[in-house]
Nucleic acid binder design. Sequence first.
DNA 1: ATGGCCGGTGGAACCGGA
Length: 268
Amino acid sequence: MRIATFNINGVKARAEALAAWLDAETPDVAILQEIKSEDASFPRELIEERGYYLETHGQKGFNGVVLLSKLPLEDVMRGLPGDPEDLQARYIEATIVGKSALRVCGLYLPNGNPVELDAAGRPVDGGKYAYKLKWMERLHARAVTLLAEEIPFLMAGDYNIIPQAEDAKRPNAWREDALFRPESRAAYRRLLNLGLTEAFRARVQGPGHYSFWDYQAGAWNKDDGIRIDHVLLSPEAADLLLEVRIQKDVRAGEKPSDHVPVWVELDL
DNA sequence: ATGGCCGGTGGAACCGGA
């Protein structure tokens, strides 16, 4: 089973490129972020006429995550538990059943900039950086719950986290950024330390592998990228891992997103 | 060499992104 996560940066602007990508790559499951669309205005036909089940969790103008799958999406959950006041559409889960069941969690983790710290160096309450870190605590809690239920699962999406210096062309440019600050990376490591496997680094070592290139300043032409889109696997899911791949060529396509798909193939 | 963007909203600039 081939599964891709892809931040498409707007489903309206990306409809044509998304359709072409689905036709060419035929993922079994695709986990999309930043659809920037309400559920009612999501172009469902585009997906469904290609033989996919579709579950959306959208929001007007910003954010928005969806799951699409050749197999039925069961027991859908929208929103990350832990804060009823958080109305941002950044999380969706569903179960697919191949040879065995897999819980698929799609996420669009908050960017977190600008970083606002108080005199003691603590994130300022109500600020975007505090929101990011709190959201990561909630994601950690969700992973604990799923691990306890002993369901094989993956958590895939735009994490807005540069895990290590080797995951950026110019790490020094990101030192103070919410994507690379120590608090962000520590929260990401706490997630991994639950026993989750980051699919890409389980298979590929070394620098020069990116999933995002800014539209600005010729970043793509200079290969000035960062690796921020990740697939985390529960222990049972990690046992099923066959292949992993970053589909870099998509960034050179017609009217591309600033992110590219990250793929895993599972023996499922 | 240097500088450089894009999408959505709403119908002009502005917000948000990373």
